[in-house]
Design a protein around this nucleic acid. Structure first.
Lengths: 144, 144
DNA sequence: GTATGTGCAAATCATTTGCATTCTC
DNA sequence: GAGAATGCAAATGATTTGCACATAC
């Protein structure tokens, strides 16, 4: 988390923007669990800890965190996006249960090769990928 | 498109629901281009053709079309979901330009093997996957 | 000192819902 | 004829914006 803060400070400096204690508080909270989150849930977590952070401040910070590659979009569900911190983590994909929402993270080295292949074939500079596999988990598949 | 209509008729019959001319009009419009679409754009397309279809009717139809596997979610962008018709099409993935939105569809047989592997490893019944690769296309990569 | 960030309240946009009416089966 | 579907208008929920004030650089 120290790293993420340092990276963000450098990021805003390079962009000519400003850092604030509110932003660092949000980043610390995101990194504290290293888990998936959405805006509302993050807001409530901060509120529970008596941090006075408004939702707009979270919404305004997210594009910066995405650009700084400290977080990424994980999946869209229940009508809103879910994000996850990614700094210092190996890239991974998600296997999700359509019934109970259980999520398993897995890594797949083949996808790097695929990126290289696509870059050549279509003359793209690849920045990343998002793979979601969905189905029913061991428990839910019995009732479906 | 004849096929999709027939499939939808059978689908509603099996579910004890009802078919309507409005629903067939929407399905025809979706299949007419076989292209990605979002609700608002679809609504405007229908409006331009003087079809009197309300947005709620589109919103109410989409879950049925997803369940009948006539469409699938393609990607979330600009604050809303985009869909695409899939009936009679080979499953494919998307390569998207982060700058101009250019989208290339590609197929990758490896992903079927991955599904099988994940099903065994995590005891899931797999229903599908969504892979998006993003980066900058040949034109945009020069200016970024 | 300037101009960026903050919190609040209001606005916006996508989507859903209640309801009276219409239509399918 | 019963129960679904439609269109409209209103409600909801997520996100964005305007603005006055605070604060980072």
């Amino acid at each position: 988390m120290r790293d993420e803060i340092a990276i963000f400070r450098e990021f805003v400096r390079m962009k000519g923007l400003r850092n604030t204690p509110e932003r660092e508080t949000i980043i610390r909270e995101i990194c504290a669990t290293r888990d998936h989150f959405d805006v509302d849930e993050l807001y409530l977590r901060l509120k529970r800890k008596k941090k006075k952070i408004s939702k707009p401040s979270i919404y305004r910070l997210i594009p910066l965190l995405l650009e700084a590659r400290l977080i990424q979009e994980a999946y869209f569900e229940e009508g809103h996006l879910h994000y996850e911190p990614i700094y210092g983590r190996e890239h991974h994909c998600h296997l999700r249960c359509l019934n109970c929402g259980k999520t398993i993270e897995f890594t797949e080295e083949f996808l790097d090769k695929l990126e290289t292949k696509l870059a050549e074939e279509y003359d793209f500079v690849i920045r990343g990928h998002k793979l979601e596999v969905f189905g029913y988990c061991s428990k839910c598949k019995l009732h479906i």
